[in-house]
Design a protein around this nucleic acid. Structure first.
Lengths: 233, 233
DNA sequence: ACAAAAGTGTTAGACGTACACCCATGC
DNA sequence: GCATGGGTGTACGTCTAACACTTTTGT
């Protein structure tokens, strides 16, 4: 029965928007146009509005930031951050969302952003505590690739097994055997479904095309090599 | 550049405190002593205080709710919930934390709680949107057992391999082969470390005793049977 | 002796990895 | 033909699941 009125917060929804560009994992960052941290790079985001739910706010910010509409990319909550002093403006908690997009035409600049663009995921430093948020989100993405068909969300449909493999290699940062990868993915039920079509690479045999399958989880999971300890045996 | 002042929230930190009692997964619930939802079961929790970080608030609530001190149980953030109308008192967002404890003496009643006790994890309905929060946290715990040594946090030290197996069976709800489980766990490096001691069960051969090992993740993971799809082959 | 729980050995099959090999195309 | 990327076959080592069996206690 506390009589003291608890502290109130503004709630920001910040987005870690990832894509794969040029075989590298990339994140959408904005250059801040306002104080605090004016001119520094930061994750795109905005305040939760009155009567709005968190996933709705994340989706709205995503649309505002990227200009895409009608699309329904992967969007999942990563965590919340409320360390005192994390925002010089005062008591502002941040809820971080992870968004996965295929490599798309350039994003637009938001209202609060002087510029927006794709950056390497080890770009530092970022404004606020966004270094940490970005690190947490990337780690989440890496583990999600093991257990869920999330990798397909990085690919524009239809895609080839090679496209999918490129995603795994970019996100995990390790090379994978094309032959074994192909077998594993096509063998997992529900990961990808074949369209009858093929796509012709600049040179080489045409590749079969696929769309995302109905599965929500991968069983058995795709094990990331050297996940914990290198096989020191 | 929005001139309208964004909505402000109070932030509640709610705890999903799990333990294993009588070979069943159990959750600590309180009976609410105040409106709203007076008399209904709810997750323990409280408001984030001025100058307090989220993990600190979770730890403080845990101590207040269970009366334990000096202990450092597993505590991890599960997610945040801010659906409009989720709390009749107004704009209150909730950050949920998952706590894992060994089976302990009865918890104490908190300030806001008429009574606190252990309940089956399928106890319904709970106040607010706590049904959903509980479901999310239990699912998190289940997957954590696969990849981390979290199961040991359910055991008072020192523990036997049989104790540990009982945790897996309770949380996953499936029987495991004692022989293979023993080999797997003792074979994984860093999961458990042997004390030289033994414990005598009511009847049967004495069991070797162990403490939690240094590993933070399990590699390879312990696969939960029938994780995604039953072997419909 | 018997029951009960702990722990070891063994085996058959499933799975992962490595890599040889074939396929289909553009140049 | 040759380079290139796609895809299949195969062999070998490792891991898993199933279960027979031994060990060590209390009664």
């Amino acid at each position: 029965m506390r009589s003291r009125r608890p502290t109130t917060f503004q709630i920001a929804v910040d987005l870690v928007i990832l894509t794969v560009r040029d075989a590298r994992l990339a994140v959408l960052l904005i250059e801040r146009g306002n104080d605090p941290y004016r001119g520094q790079l930061a994750l795109p985001g905005g305040f939760l509005r009155d009567g709005e739910d968190l996933p709705d706010a994340a989706e709205r910010e995503l649309r505002e930031e990227t200009g895409l509409h009608g699309l329904s990319p992967h969007l999942e909550q990563v965590g919340s951050y409320a360390t005192p002093g994390r925002d010089p403006r005062g008591a502002i908690a941040s809820v971080a969302y992870l968004a996965i997009l295929p490599d798309l035409p350039v994003p637009v600049a938001g209202t609060d952003a002087a510029a927006a663009g794709w950056y390497a995921i080890d770009t530092r430093p970022l404004a606020f505590d966004h270094d940490r948020i970005l690190r947490d989100a990337v780690e989440r993405a890496r583990t999600r690739l093991e257990n869920t068909p999330l990798a397909a969300a990085f690919c524009r449909e239809p895609f080839t097994i090679g496209d999918l493999r490129a995603v795994y290699e970019a996100v995990w940062g390790v090379p994978l055997d094309p032959r074994n990868f192909h077998r594993k993915v096509t063998g997992l039920s529900g990961f990808v479904t074949s369209t009858g079509e093929t796509r012709h690479p600049p040179t080489g045999r045409p590749a079969n095309l696929y769309r995302r399958g109905p599965a929500a989880t991968l069983y058995p999971p795709l094990q990331r090599p050297n996940a914990a300890s290198p096989p020191t045996v």
